[in-house]
Amino acid sequence: MTQKPPTRGAAAPRFRSIVTTILMVMLTVMIIRDIFARRWSSPGRAASDVTHHLP
């Protein structure tokens, strides 16, 4: 005999869809916030990738 898992109705897929959407929106907001923070909070000149040695 094969057993089927109990069905929970349509609420479970809808709940998962809402949670996924909220997580994607939060991720997008964090990425955009990071881009704006890097653009406007940078000091007067861009940081160099070259290591400076003190004499």
Results as ranks from 00 to 15, higher is better:
1 M>C: 08
1 M>Q: 11
2 T>R: 15
2 T>Y: 14
2 T>W: 14
2 T>N: 13
2 T>F: 13
3 Q>Y: 15
3 Q>W: 11
3 Q>F: 13
4 K>D: 10
4 K>R: 15
4 K>Y: 13
5 P>F: 12
5 P>I: 09
5 P>W: 06
5 P>H: 12
5 P>D: 11
6 P>R: 15
6 P>G: 12
6 P>E: 15
7 T>K: 10
8 R>H: 02
8 R>L: 04
8 R>A: 01
9 G>H: 11
9 G>L: 06
9 G>S: 09
9 G>W: 08
10 A>N: 14
10 A>R: 15
11 A>R: 15
11 A>Y: 13
11 A>C: 06
12 A>W: 10
12 A>F: 08
13 P>S: 14
14 R>S: 06
14 R>E: 14
14 R>H: 11
15 F>C: 02
15 F>M: 07
15 F>H: 06
16 R>E: 08
16 R>Y: 05
16 R>A: 04
17 S>Y: 01
17 S>C: 01
17 S>T: 01
17 S>M: 03
17 S>D: 04
18 I>M: 08
19 V>D: 12
19 V>L: 11
19 V>K: 15
19 V>Q: 12
20 T>V: 00
20 T>R: 09
20 T>F: 01
21 T>Y: 06
21 T>Q: 09
21 T>P: 00
21 T>K: 06
22 I>K: 12
23 L>E: 08
23 L>M: 06
23 L>D: 05
24 M>T: 12
24 M>P: 01
25 V>P: 00
26 M>Q: 11
26 M>V: 09
26 M>S: 09
28 T>M: 02
28 T>L: 02
29 V>H: 02
29 V>C: 03
29 V>K: 01
29 V>M: 03
29 V>R: 02
29 V>L: 05
29 V>N: 03
30 M>H: 01
30 M>D: 03
30 M>W: 00
30 M>F: 01
30 M>A: 09
30 M>E: 03
32 I>T: 01
32 I>V: 08
32 I>D: 00
33 R>M: 06
33 R>N: 07
33 R>F: 07
34 D>I: 03
34 D>V: 02
34 D>G: 10
34 D>E: 13
35 I>C: 03
35 I>E: 04
35 I>Y: 06
36 F>R: 05
36 F>V: 11
37 A>M: 01
40 W>K: 02
40 W>E: 04
41 S>N: 14
41 S>L: 04
42 S>E: 12
42 S>D: 07
42 S>W: 06
43 P>A: 08
43 P>Q: 07
44 G>Q: 08
44 G>I: 06
44 G>A: 11
45 R>Q: 14
45 R>G: 05
45 R>Y: 10
46 A>M: 00
46 A>H: 03
47 A>Q: 13
47 A>H: 10
47 A>F: 09
49 D>P: 04
49 D>M: 11
49 D>G: 08
49 D>V: 07
51 T>N: 13
51 T>P: 07
51 T>R: 15
51 T>Q: 14
51 T>A: 15
52 H>S: 07
53 H>G: 05
54 L>Y: 14
54 L>F: 10
54 L>K: 12
55 P>S: 12
55 P>E: 11
55 P>H: 07
